[in-house]
Amino acid sequence: MSDHSPTTPPDGPRNGPPVSGREFDVLFDEVRTWGRWADAGRGAWNRVTAGHVRTAVSLVRSGTVVALGRPWDTVPGPDNAKPALHFMSDLGDVEAPEPSAHKDFIGADYHGKAVSHLDAPAHIAYRGRLYGGGAARELVGAGGARFGDVAALGPLVTRGVLLDLPAVLGTEWLEPGRAVHAADVLAAEEALGVTVGEGDAVLLRVGRFRRRRELGAWDPGEACAGFHVGAVPLLAGRGVALLGSDGDSDVRPSPVEGVHSPVHALALAAMGVPLLDNLDLEALSAACAEAGRYAFLLVVAPLNIPGGTGSPVGPVAVL
Rank of each mutant, 00 (worst) to 15 (best):
H86Q: 13
L243T: 06
A223W: 00
L192W: 00
T309V: 13
E198R: 13
G239A: 11
T195Q: 14
P78C: 09
A286F: 06
V259D: 00
F28M: 04
A283R: 15
R208E: 08
A96C: 10
G51N: 12
P253A: 08
E282N: 12
S2K: 08
R293F: 08
Y294V: 01
D104R: 10
R70G: 03
H111L: 13
V256W: 01
H228N: 15
G154F: 13
P6W: 05
G128T: 10
R146M: 11
A231Q: 02
T64A: 14
M1E: 10
Y110K: 02
S62E: 15
A179M: 05
D248R: 11
G63S: 13
G21D: 04
I124H: 06
S5F: 11
D79L: 03
H123S: 12
G35T: 10
R47C: 06
A183W: 00
V168K: 04
V313S: 09
G107Q: 10
A289D: 11
A142C: 03
F227S: 02
T171W: 03
G51V: 10
G16H: 03
A125L: 03
N46A: 09
W34G: 13
M88F: 07
D200E: 03
A183H: 11
S254M: 05
G237V: 06
A81E: 15
V26N: 06
E172G: 15
G16C: 06
G107W: 07
P233D: 08
R238K: 15
